[in-house]
Design a protein around this nucleic acid. Structure first.
Lengths: 227, 227
DNA sequence: TTAATTTTCGAACAGTTGTTTGACTAGACC
DNA sequence: GGTCTAGTCAAACAACTGTTCGAAAATTAA
């Protein structure tokens, strides 16, 4: 059934068999996790689908928990790096002026949505992020801090420069809501169907991203334009 | 361990033992589901915690799926009814004028947040809603349509009256984002800690709701104030 | 009271879970 | 060649899953 043989090729050229096994597991785990969540994704599903032996997971990763940690880090870290890279570039571009609000949020949201519209290899990433964020497992909670703490602090600092009139509380609440809107967009995709009776498609990422950016930017700067 | 003996008393007065069993299961299932999600919530956890026999679940509800359906309906339907009741009242109050945007969103968001701040019996409701919405299970998806389809259509109609200048697409996208922000707020509570370094507490519901309402209202009406 | 019905309960069912084990294979290095 | 290591594999492990069953127990009706 699974004819997907397009693996990540390391720069060394050839690929040891053990590495194809590892990456097959990583890929398949990501896909199944995004579909079913952590508990409902069984190692037998993963290994059968990946065409490897059941014991391979514990051999290469140690445990199911460790496998999931590897999956998340493997996929989320590059996106967060890209987010910070774009933010740094914006700061340089606009220096000594603060970066405009919509540019900051573009740096925060676009990398995720662009990755998701890229190669078929990246399909399902958005759903996976949604699942990862909403998983109630303990080790997922720890992962949140590990993976997102730096990111949010850096963006908070820059938002403060752009909106010096906002209190610390307000900045935090509003960034919280911006991220919430993003999470909700990832997690609650089913609602777009419900609301639009199937007229709007989540797969139209470009349109979605633009509307989303307009929404969160306007929400964040509310009081500037209100009174 | 579980000394919670405060059950829902039916208007008949006395309480048949079978009904206390039923409601104990319902309560405990709600609590554990909100903590762990559907798959990770086992019937043995539920029954042990509720102090009832394992077989009681299948006797009273038929299956685990049916139990979850009962839990959701039991808790979400009253909230949605209250949302629609408030919307209807607003329409009457403002007739023949359209209802102001912030009032519409207040009717949509407040019932949920108020229920959650009420009796201890209602604690954990917010998290349960988050879980229910983000569960990837098939029967949960069907439930979304069942439980939320009417609600979104009614609110969409009213939003169209208030914002006639917005296209159908825009209305749908923006309502989608409003709901997303709400979902994200429920699902991604852990981020408030991460962002504010523990300074802001999710339990400050009143503050949270006010900031949330300001945020989504401003996001929704963006173009009115933009150009 | 007796009889009928509803509800509880312990035990077991069949199936699935993550993990471990030990034999087997292939390649690297001396 | 022989030795060693990394990787694969089938099989089994113990624990846990939702569900079912029949006999007790409790409740209701007559």
């Amino acid at each position: 059934m699974n004819s997907n043989t397009c693996f990540i090729m390391p720069s060394t050229g050839t690929l040891k068999k053990s590495e194809t096994t590892r990456s097959r597991i990583l890929e398949t785990a990501e896909r199944l996790f995004s579909k079913r969540g952590f508990r409902a994704m069984t190692l037998r599903d993963v290994t059968v689908d990946a065409g490897v032996n059941l014991a391979a997971v514990n051999y290469h990763f140690g445990s199911k928990d460790a496998l999931m940690r590897a999956v998340i880090k493997h996929r989320v870290q590059p996106i967060n790096k890209e987010r910070l890279r774009r933010l740094d570039q914006l700061i340089i571009d606009y220096a000594p002026e603060p970066v405009p609000l919509e540019k900051i949020f573009d740096a925060l949201l676009r990398p995720l949505f662009e990755k998701a519209t890229g190669s078929p290899h990246n399909r399902g990433l958005i759903r996976m992020m949604g699942r990862a964020i909403s998983e109630p497992t303990d080790f997922m909670h720890r992962m949140h801090k590990e993976v997102f703490s730096d990111l949010t602090q850096r963006f908070l600092t820059e938002l403060q420069r752009t909106c010096p009139q906002l209190s610390r509380d307000q900045l935090q609440y509003r960034l919280f809501f911006v991220i919430d809107t993003m999470i909700g967009t990832l997690v609650g995709q089913v609602f777009l169907d419900t609301i639009s009776n199937g007229e709007l498609k989540f797969s139209d990422h470009e349109r979605m991203l633009q509307e989303l950016l307009d929404f969160v930017t306007a929400g964040f700067r509310q009081h500037e334009t209100k009174a």
